[in-house]
């Protein structure tokens, strides 16, 4: 009997489709030694960067099968996949540094809301849900990818070899994400009256969460040479945003910042009301089937 599957796969063909599905791991050959720093702080820092990527990827993936055009569906899924890949490497590193036997899935699926350390901008609904639309999604993509690219750019010099390697890989990905966002900002701002209004509304929706991105957290302050101080990212961020806004003839939104709660925000595990729903959905199967293997 002839087998229809034979001859479909070329031996030795590269199979870049998902981290951990058979090809060489993304960080193969990277030194995994843990630098001589405060371990708890390092684990927490890996969680911060990993949670940003995981939660934001979860939001972006909501566009799958809902994008304005099929080509854009593919593009947004690519970005979500890049971020998910970064999240997995970072959560794995967090577990390794913490050395308490938690792997990427335990960390992603069995932590409670207060233990998630992502910035709040990653978790809010910016569309396709009722909290936004494609314009809001692009506004967030511009802000987050500009910020994260600056962050990873500095992180390539981290004294933690794994963080440095994740950053080196991520810089290439983020450069593409930022470019994609900037291209769309130009088109939406310079397209029709409707699209311009929506682009501006989108920026107004996400802008209140920008100050949080540049606030130094004690964990970051405790890891000189390993962590990036986000306060130092502001200059690059401003310069890129000014360039894009200049080309798109946009002004910076004049909106109030969303206040922290008693001085605490995402990095401290204090989140918006959207976060609980996001986690409930993401974690529900894993939590409702104890002992199951996937």
């Amino acid at each position: 009997m002839d087998n229809a599957y034979d001859g479909l796969t070329d031996a030795g063909e590269e199979r870049h489709w998902a981290f951990g599905t058979g090809f060489t791991a993304a960080l193969a050959g990277v030194d995994r030694a843990i630098p001589d720093v405060d371990r708890a702080a390092l684990a927490a820092y890996c969680l911060m960067l990993g949670d940003d990527a995981l939660v934001y990827s979860q939001r972006l993936a909501e566009w799958c099968s809902r994008a304005p055009e099929l080509e854009e569906d593919v593009a947004l899924a690519n970005i979500a996949l890049d971020l998910l890949g970064q999240a997995r490497l970072l959560l794995t590193r967090a577990g390794e540094v913490e050395a308490a036997g938690r792997d990427e899935d335990t960390l992603a699926y069995l932590r409670d809301e207060r233990e998630f350390r992502n910035v709040r901008l990653t978790e809010i609904d910016c569309g396709p849900g009722p909290g936004g639309d494609f314009g809001t999604t692009i506004a967030r993509l511009l802000v987050l990818s500009t910020w994260r690219l600056a962050l990873l750019g500095q992180l390539t010099a981290s004294a933690d070899p794994v963080l440095a390697a994740v950053a080196a890989k991520g810089v290439k990905e983020l450069a593409y994400h930022r470019d994609h966002a900037a291209q769309w900002v130009l088109r939406l701002a310079g397209g029709t009256d409707v699209s311009r209004a929506r682009m501006i509304a989108g920026l107004e929706r996400v802008w209140p969460f920008t100050d949080e991105l540049f606030t130094t957290h004690p964990v970051e302050a405790a890891l000189p040479g390993v962590a990036v101080d986000p306060a130092t990212l502001r200059a690059e961020f401003d310069q890129v945003i000014d360039t894009v806004f200049g080309a798109a003839d946009l002004d910076r939104p004049e909106v109030r910042q969303v206040a922290p709660l008693a001085g605490q925000a995402g990095r401290d595990g204090v989140h918006t009301e959207a976060m609980g729903f996001l986690l409930a959905e993401m974690q529900h199967i894993a939590r409702s089937t104890p002992g199951a293997v996937w």
Partner: peptide, 29 residues
């Protein structure tokens, strides 16, 4: 299948599923 991306029970499964559903958009194209 897209119905399950947000709830995939492990991160590896999530990556595989998202890549797969994305492939389907590509195949359509």
């Amino acid at each position: 299948e897209g119905n399950w991306i947000s709830r995939a029970p492990s991160l590896r499964r999530k990556a595989i599923l998202l890549a797969k559903v994305q492939d389907e958009a590509g195949h359509g194209l």
